[in-house]
Design a protein around this nucleic acid. Structure first.
Length: 417
RNA sequence: CGGGCUGUAGUAUAUCGGUUGUACAAGUGCUUUGGGAGCAUUUAGGCUGGGUUCGACUCCCAGCAGCCCGACCA
């Protein structure tokens, strides 16, 4: 894409009403626009990142048997009354609104009820199970205090998968697979080295749930990390008894701040029971379906990457989720240089490379460099009178101080690998 | 929900109970072009409502909005 056609602009100064690093950098770079507290719109650059994260997650979910669908944002009162979660006294962060005919609807704040209700219609035999439907959607929570930029919003984009299994054994098998898939996801988006599978409170039907916690001072949780084993324990279940039962030693555990970027949870029959979600086994006996849920907040994940992988100049996107793979900079208004830069751009586009071309006229070299650092695309390729004189393109990684001259062919080869 | 702080151009800020100053952005012209250029010129501002006062952007009250701390948070 040509930067001259991109309506977003970078800002030199951080907005006065944001102190969170993720929001400051994402707003300065033109990735997001703040609508109100805890509510952000995703601008073209931000949407690119979100889509790449989405595709990474989609691939992993599909690989373990996930089936993508899309549940409605509107939630019916009758459905939620089955689990006694419609009442504001039980769930106080509902967004609800009135229908013209006097009825009431809620905006989805989680998906267990919706899925259980839908599958009630389709699951009746052991032959129908297991099932792993999931969706990406916007979730609405009327937070009393949204905070930390896109880390805790009133509206957020998430992936939620629900597992519907015949029995505990089948459930546990999938649960273990999901752990691996989650590990892969955080690895792929570039924060694997900072992310720990964390034992957390499990609720009614299981001893633990598993959170995926990424170390950052911007986090809301306190966890105790065993770095050698690569696992952690959330403060909420940090007792001598539990540490021992997990085979951990208190001396090996280090207290850290972290943000929960994902969690997986065994639900047992907590939802299948009230919905009477049953199937008939081979013997004709009726059994309740065993459920689990598996969530990831994509916006939060994006914000966490910014919090953990940026420097004082701007964001440093991992290649896997960067808004573009390469930032091509045209410096100067010499006709020959312009012609060359445009040619390189066309060739990159034709080769299928995701390229942002800074073709803006009347913008100084310094400003283009600063913008490139702020936006944080992994590779920066400069075409200028200087690079032309050396018969090449100057390529520099965002993480490097100095670049080097390479030929156009070498550039194409590198970026289409 | 409890507590604290803050609302001045598109953005970031300054001063002041008596005509709101600057920088960036934006428009125009010329120059400049490897780390957020220069000169000239133009455009643009006191959250809302009430009170005190001769006079309020400034002081007081209320509302609204934003941020932070805490509580809450499958």
């Amino acid at each position: 894409m040509r930067q001259s056609k991109l309506f977003t602009k970078t800002r030199k100064e951080a907005p006065a009403d944001e102190t969170a690093k993720n929001a400051e950098l994402l707003i300065r770079g033109g990735f997001i626009h703040k609508e109100m507290a805890g509510v952000y719109s995703y601008l073209p650059l931000g949407l690119n990142v979100l889509k790449k994260i989405e595709n990474i997650i989609r691939k992993e979910m599909d690989a373990i048997g996930g089936i993508e669908m899309r549940t409605s944002v509107f939630q019916s009162k009758e459905v939620w009354e089955k689990t006694n979660r419609w009442d504001d006294a039980v769930v106080d962060n509902w967004f609800k609104t009135q229908l013209k005919n006097g009825g009431e609807v809620g905006l989805s704040f989680t998906n267990e009820e919706a899925y259980s209700n839908i599958l009630k219609q389709y699951v009746s035999s052991y032959k129908d199970l297991p099932l792993y439907p999931y969706d990406f959607k916007n979730i609405f929570r009327n937070e009393t205090r949204s905070k930390s930029g896109i880390l805790r919003g009133r509206e957020f984009y998430w992936k939620a998968l629900y597992s519907f299994s015949k029995d505990e054994i089948e459930h546990n098998e999938f649960y273990e697979k999901s752990k691996v898939a989650y590990k892969n996801i955080f690895e792929k988006v570039g924060i694997g080295h900072l992310t720990y599978m964390t034992f957390a409170s499990g609720g009614t039907f299981s001893k633990f749930s598993h959170e995926f916690q990424t170390l950052t001072g911007a986090g809301e949780d306190t966890i105790y990390v065993d770095e050698n084993k690569g696992i952690a324990v959330n403060k909420e279940v940090y007792t001598d008894e539990i540490i021992e039962s997990l085979g951990l030693k208190k001396d090996d555990l280090v207290e850290k701040r972290a943000i929960e970027v994902g969690n997986i949870f065994s639900l047992g029959t907590k939802f299948s029971a009230p919905f009477d979600l049953k199937y008939k086994n081979e013997k004709g006996e009726e059994k309740l379906v065993i459920m689990g849920c598996y969530g990831i907040g994509l916006g939060r994940l994006m914000g966490t990457v910014v919090e953990t992988l940026s420097d004082d100049k701007g964001i440093i996107w991992p290649e896997s989720i960067a808004p573009f793979t390469v930032h091509l900079l045209l410096l100067g208004d010499d006709a020959k240089v312009q012609e060359e830069a445009n040619k390189v751009y066309e060739n990159l586009v034709n080769a299928g490379v995701d390229v942002l071309f800074d073709d803006r006229a009347d913008v100084s070299a310094g400003e283009k460099f600063s913008d490139a650092d702020l936006i944080g695309i992994p590779y920066r390729a400069v075409v200028s009178a200087r690079s032309l004189k050396e018969n090449g393109i100057e390529l520099k990684k965002r993480t490097e101080e100095k670049g080097q001259i390479i030929t156009e062919n070498e550039l194409l080869k590198l970026l289409t690998k």
